[in-house]
Design a protein around this nucleic acid. Structure first.
Ligand code: MN
Ligand code: MN
Ligand code: ZN
Ligand code: ZN
Lengths: 167, 167
DNA sequence: CTGCAACTGAGACTGAGTCGCAATCGCATG
DNA sequence: CATGCGATTGCGACTCAGTCTCAGTTGCAG
């Protein structure tokens, strides 16, 4: 399984004169085992839990390679740090993030993508990448959290760790 | 000047039983003096440069209040840390960020905003905030950096600090 | 004037991510 | 098999934005 992306990775390493070591294999396998948004240290504990011996530095170094090769995405989901996710070649998506349960919903809206290009053209800007995410309350959490309560919740949170309400 | 936002801030503090101290005034003034995307430590050195005595902790604490009050925005422009910008009440914008010169261009595209709501509705998601930014090469940097060179540049950068090409 | 909660500065602390380096590996060559 | 050599790894030190603690200060209400 995942031979498609494994090939891309192997070729990427080859082209750079790098080696497909067992450590790099292990990180790859862990990331491509299932689709999720996982942080670097989580990968570390999982691999260690499986009895594999690997260091934190190697995890980070390998993630960098995977991201550069284009088959892994690095996204800011929470306030701090990055999460990594496998990508299917040629596909793209953006994220909805629930402030209550942390759930991550992926979406793709071609009309938004196309309007982005319009905007860039308007400014003579050559787009190379973008990140677009919305934060709020997901379907599962909505019944429990009405609109007014959501605002109140944000209000309350100001005492402790407030959800990242940029803009 | 900026009495509109200053009033909002004052009322915000009042409602919470907090005080409008000289330190908080100073941070407010520095932020609202001109429109830009500035980091916390930059505010510190500027205020110190003006002979004001203020601590880093107070800067951060005040910025948190300003963001909570809704008159200041906190954005991730670079790879690390946040930048702060004054906001005009009721207005909103997103960002284009140049990978070459760091310039930040603000844009607002109502059709994107509206499509965002469509997407959220599709998933039963209640949107509370969003962040949307595109990275690439700005008009000023484009003549010097052709499309192919931009890719090559990204390629080259993989050795050193690569530009944040998420997705 | 007094009391008390809000504030502040200084510096210790946290935690994600990076870096330097010595030991090791994988492989090609003779 | 021995040698050479760049790539790789683990370890731990390090960085740096941001947070926290705490003791001393301020400012207002009673
Ligand atoms: Mn995703
Ligand atoms: Mn802006
Ligand atoms: Zn949820
Ligand atoms: Zn530029």
């Amino acid at each position: 399984m995942r031979t498609r992306e494994r090939d891309i990775f192997r070729k990427y390493l080859e082209r750079r004169g790098l080696k497909l070591t067992t450590e790099r294999q292990a990180v790859f396998d862990e990331l491509f085992a299932r689709h999720e948004h996982v942080e670097a240290d989580e990968i570390l504990v999982r691999l260690r839990g499986k009895g594999k011996k690997i260091s934190r530095a190697t995890i980070y170094r390998t993630l960098e390679l995977l991201v550069d090769s284009g088959i892994v995405g690095r996204v800011r989901i929470g306030e701090i740090g990055y999460r990594y996710e496998r990508l299917r070649a040629g596909e793209h998506h953006d994220h909805l993030i629930c402030n209550e349960c942390g759930r991550v919903i992926e979406f793709f809206e071609p009309r938004i993508e196309s309007l982005q290009d319009d905007v860039c053209e308007r400014y003579g800007f050559l787009p190379l990448s973008h990140s677009h995410q919305m934060r709020g309350i997901c379907r599962q959490c909505r019944p429990r959290t009405s609109v007014v309560e959501a605002v109140a919740s944000a209000e309350r949170a100001k005492a402790g760790r407030r959800p990242h309400l940029v803009h």
